[in-house]
Nucleic acid binder design. Structure first.
Lengths: 127, 127
DNA sequence: ATAGGACTTCGAGTGCGCTCGAAGTCAAAA
DNA sequence: TTTTGACTTCGAGCGCACTCGAAGTCCTAT
């Protein structure tokens, strides 16, 4: 918390991170955040830049199909201190394998789709 | 239907296509197939090579996150004859855009994950 | 001071894509 | 011929990740 911290409302964070305010509250309920979100006057949430940074990373994990439960594990490790760094690294490395596999499958599927498209193109343009 | 056709049971198709027999029946119920699956003795399904080919392509559409409903549209077009080829081409082209976008987002996410991994590596290996 | 809108919690509802189970039928091997 | 196990239909159930709505509270601008 330095002087340069912008504390953001939930709506501002939703816009910056690209999810709904409902989803932000859901993630918090599920224990996916690294620490309790600050509150203005003990009710309205106030997010730090660090919170936003983590949420942005979280959305990348989701985008690469990491289940909520796995992200929860990762967040729990991160909350448990520095001696869980190795475990976190291993978790990310395992996830990395899955992402590479997904990219590979998608790329192969794209090739099949392109092949089909080429077929239609031939028959459509020769008309 | 040539002499060289291997008619396959649902279990054999499930194995070849990489989905469960339950899923195969579900796809059929949902109207995702191009034509009625043949039957042995009017009960047990018998799939042709063409059926398997379509199912393989169908799984690639699913793998690239095309919703069941869109696949249903595509199959309906394909069933409606040759004059829907242009419409099918457009559908596939639109889907292609989405696949490319997904690949791009995934690749960017992978970069973020790799960046995080590199950070852990530094701190873990310098110990 | 007051109005209006953004925020709060909490539980319930939704949509998608399967996945399962029951109850029964069929067919290939011994 | 009998048995075993793969097949059939049908409707219901499930898991995931949100998404929504109700009912109430708080902040900001006028």
């Amino acid at each position: 918390m330095t002087v340069t911290d912008h504390l953001l409302s939930i709506a501002e964070v939703a816009e910056r991170v690209g999810v709904s305010t409902h989803t932000l509250r859901y993630y918090e309920r599920e224990g996916l955040l690294l620490r309790p979100v600050g509150r203005a006057s003990s009710t309205h949430r106030r997010y730090t830049d660090a919170d936003v940074g983590w949420l942005r990373f979280l959305t990348k994990l989701r985008l690469t199909a990491m289940p909520i439960a796995r992200i929860k594990e990762y967040a729990a490790l991160a909350r448990s201190g520095d001696d869980t760094e190795e475990a976190r690294l291993e978790l990310l490395l395992r996830h990395r394998m899955s992402v590479v596999a997904q990219l590979d499958e998608m790329t192969k599927s794209l090739a099949a789709i392109d092949y089909k498209i080429a077929g239609y193109r031939e028959r459509t343009e020769t008309r």
